[in-house]
Simulated assay, not measured.
Amino acid sequence: MRLFAVLLAVLAPVTALAAAPPAPPPMADAAAVEAEMARLMRATGAQAWAVAVVDQGKVVQLHAAGKRNAAGDPLTTDTVMYGASLTKMAFAYMVMQLVDEGVLDLDRPIGAYLERPLPDYPAEKQYAPWPDLKDDPRWQRLTARMLLSHRSGFANFAFLEPDGKLRLHFDPGTRYAYSGEGLILLQFVLERGLGLEVGAEMQRRVFDRFGMTRTSMTWRADFAGNLADGWTQDGRTEPHDERSRVRAAGSMDTTIADMARFAAGYVRGEGLSAKARAALVRAQWPITTASQFPTLQDALAPAKRRRDLAAGLGVVVFQGPQGRGFYKGGHDDAVGNTLVCVAWRQRCVVVLGNDVRAEAAFPALVRFVLGETGVPWTWEYGGKAFVE
């Protein structure tokens, strides 16, 4: 009996971990989602947004509402919109295919893939000013896993530094601090170290795989016929930026239909081994800050940290009332996007907003479609006020 009791005590936590989370609430039907979109547009003043719903790894709803430009042309499900930092999630998915093939090792120092030390490479417009690191040997510790989980030690971008110089603010791998520059460094390693063209690899391994026919890492002339401009917080319109350079941190143009296909394929793990798929959405490192931005801020005291929040590879992972989930946001002055998935039942909501004011409605809309998920909205957006 004593042995049985010991075994029961040991196995109980395993059983609890294996148990399925509570059954998710039924998802709203298409008509209800469109009505809620309209209500939230009125509440925020947003001019337009597009929404996709994925259930059990399949696209089940596509919606677009409002205007794609100041002329009043309608936003449609195949309107090209700026993907912003959702690019990072797609890039990480491509990188894990290279890991599966043995082309890249997540934990091998990046210097092993380069012909010469990183600071010896000249500064190029496409990349960060690597020569700025010449007096700091800590760059040699950097690995692909650190870069994809935002543990490089860089600021978000070097051009945001007061003097515009690239520097390491902490020992690589020791803490989370969001950095697009880290993704740019991994792009540099793939292109200069391994001889790959990231734009071509993204096209072949991600966009073509999922049938994303109106998605690209750079501007395409055929996008011009159905293209979204943006609206800023104060209601000004901004023209769509025709990006000519591949940037792993955020150059992707896409549509809601294409991002729905990506989300469905991603949550199914298509094109990846089970090990690689699990690594993407596994907690790689705890997140200990009060908000995502500013990127370089002090850690909270342990008692105030969210223990359910961690960095994955290209995504943020969390634990909520429906079990494990993950998400990625993306925005600039005139764009607000989010992609939220609940792992169990492979359910996702994708939102592309060509009006940054739509962000204030993201929590309400995601909750309306998926139920309460536990997405860390306050951490993602800091002190932003949300509408209900």
Rank of each mutant, 00 (worst) to 15 (best):
241 D>R: 01
79 T>G: 13
212 M>C: 06
151 R>W: 00
359 E>T: 13
379 W>S: 02
388 E>V: 02
317 V>M: 10
252 M>D: 06
327 Y>M: 13
27 M>Y: 01
184 I>A: 11
38 A>F: 05
285 W>P: 00
37 M>K: 04
291 S>M: 13
207 F>V: 07
277 R>L: 12
318 F>M: 11
265 G>N: 05
7 L>G: 11
108 R>E: 00
126 Q>F: 09
170 F>N: 05
362 F>H: 14
209 R>V: 00
10 V>A: 14
50 A>V: 00
31 A>M: 07
80 V>M: 03
344 W>K: 12
99 V>G: 06
315 V>S: 05
134 K>E: 12
300 L>Y: 05
198 V>D: 01
254 T>L: 09
69 N>W: 00
144 A>K: 15
190 L>R: 01
369 V>T: 10
37 M>G: 01
361 A>H: 03
95 V>K: 10
265 G>A: 06
271 G>W: 04
379 W>T: 09
140 Q>R: 14
348 C>W: 04
27 M>R: 02
45 G>Q: 05
364 A>I: 09
97 Q>A: 11
59 V>N: 07
298 D>Y: 09
225 G>E: 14
195 G>N: 03
329 G>C: 06
233 Q>D: 05
225 G>D: 14
224 A>T: 03
195 G>L: 02
202 M>C: 08
91 F>T: 14
235 G>T: 04
115 E>P: 02
256 I>S: 03
55 D>V: 12
213 T>E: 03
173 G>H: 07
137 P>D: 10
186 L>G: 09
182 G>A: 07
32 A>Y: 05
316 V>R: 04
155 A>M: 11
299 A>Q: 12
185 L>A: 05
272 L>T: 13
321 P>K: 03
358 A>T: 13
4 F>I: 15
45 G>L: 03
3 L>I: 14
343 A>Q: 15
181 E>S: 07
1 M>W: 08
147 L>N: 03
280 L>T: 03
163 D>I: 00
352 L>E: 07
315 V>Q: 04
348 C>F: 09
355 D>L: 00
59 V>D: 03
256 I>A: 02
144 A>L: 08
23 A>T: 15
194 L>Q: 12
366 V>T: 15
294 P>Q: 13
4 F>S: 13
370 L>A: 10
241 D>A: 03
25 P>R: 15
23 A>K: 15
289 T>I: 05
222 D>G: 08
49 W>V: 09
189 V>I: 14
318 F>Q: 08
314 G>P: 00
322 Q>V: 08
357 R>M: 12
253 D>H: 15
272 L>F: 11
13 P>W: 02
357 R>H: 10
153 G>Q: 02
252 M>V: 15
83 G>A: 15
